[in-house]
Nucleic acid binder design. Structure first.
Ligand SMILES: [Mn+2]
Ligand SMILES: [Mn+2]
Ligand SMILES: [Mn+2]
Ligand SMILES: [Mn+2]
Lengths: 218, 218
DNA sequence: ACAAATATTTAGATTTGTCTAAAATTTGAT
DNA sequence: ATCAAATTTTAGACAAATCTAAATATTTGT
């Protein structure tokens, strides 16, 4: 599998939301910042290789084998992210670009040794679950902060957007994975929230709340 | 710089024996297992990019900038080799292929953090020196075992051939970097040596002796 | 149901890196 | 100094991955 093929496989996987549903040419093109025509060419090739199922004009999804490849890539990506944060003291907004390269390194022994060195972590620095060697992982039970009723509290377990600007915003506002957040008040007009984090009461916009996952603590 | 360009730069560097001497098209082709015509195409491109100096029919060498690029690649390659051995318990004959991939990862912060994590090592698992961030490194004063006079002893500091078969042979015969070796006797007929390592007297062929570097102790 | 808008594919071109076969140059043995 | 052998370059082809522009198919709104 070439680096480029691998990136397409990952894109199809992620757009399929872990359900391996059918995704459109345009969605893939958007996700990968390429043109739809390039996607058509590539998914034909992936189909020929037995990695994807592609029907002209109908869309594409991964085969069972393709799904295994995707999970291996996701596993490697997230393990490297943990490595960068835990062992090399990278900030959580600095790891994605490098992991995007490291995920393509071909060595099963390397991946598994890394897993062991890191103590078999279950989640990456953004709260996303890490597939095990045989491709299993538990889908986290988590809800977006903006969908949580007023008065409820939960533990911050992940982010939907893991772009540097968003992660930096969280750092600046002292919101980190593992923190407990209580929803104090919701503004009807713009959907903004008044929340309590580490004793402090702060206001956050709907866009922020729509990108932060909580696990409800009953 | 693409992955392919980087591998050519490294090849030219290594064939230049650290002296940055002029190397021929055929030498590069041999080293990289490609065809001379492919090398011609590539060195033209490297020349256009200001990385190499190429004169038709005369050969190629690196520019000052090209040399810097080469040293960065060598630095990354050897740091990753140390990482694999020290942190992931790879054997010294298993690291080359993986380091060949890892050396192309682009992140200065990654390289320097890795260097720090490893405690700024001076040599890789094969005894080869690791260039510092600014491209400096001491050329080891070392001699091949088959060029050392009878009666002399030295410390094993490196290997010339770092292929798996040779490294495995050394493991099997309990010869490791750091060991003291005393040359007891040299056979005129085939150049084989009788040596003392860790109290044991063993016989090794000329081919073996021609690939093991010692630093003379005294 | 059908036209307009949108999505998707095809056709043809480009870049990168490689190859084979043929031509040109250099080397080195007499 | 000559010329055959070895080396190196050129010419032309190909596969991978991408793009633009044009053609085709699907979806949507009335
Ligand atoms: Mn990637
Ligand atoms: Mn992540
Ligand atoms: Mn390499
Ligand atoms: Mn090495």
């Amino acid at each position: 599998m070439t680096l480029s093929e691998e990136d397409y496989i990952k894109a199809i996987y992620h757009l399929g939301k872990g359900e391996n549903s059918i995704v459109s040419t345009n969605e893939v093109a958007e996700q990968m910042s390429t043109k739809p025509s390039s996607v058509t060419d590539m998914v034909k090739k992936l189909s020929d290789k037995g990695v994807a199922n592609y029907k002209k004009y109908k869309g594409v999804c991964l085969t069972e084998y393709g799904l295994k490849v995707a999970l291996t890539l996701v596993r490697k990506h997230r393990l490297w992210e943990v490595f960068l944060v835990e062992k090399l003291n990278f900030a959580w907004d600095e790891v994605h670009e490098v992991a995007e390269q490291l995920e393509h390194i071909k060595s099963e022994k390397l991946t598994d040794s890394l897993d062991k060195l890191l103590g078999f972590p279950q989640v990456d620095p953004h709260g996303d679950p890490i597939p095990s060697k045989n491709g299993e992982f538990k889908k986290a039970v988590k809800k977006l902060l903006n969908e949580i009723p007023v008065g409820t509290s939960g533990t911050c377990v992940g982010v939907r957007d893991s772009s540097a600007p968003f992660l930096k915003f969280l750092d600046k506002n002292k919101i980190a994975l593992g923190d407990t957040i209580l929803v104090l008040e919701k503004e009807e007009f713009d959907g903004s929230l008044y929340i309590q984090v580490k004793g402090e009461d702060i206001r956050i916009s709907d866009q922020i709340a729509a990108n932060l996952y909580l696990k409800i603590t009953e």
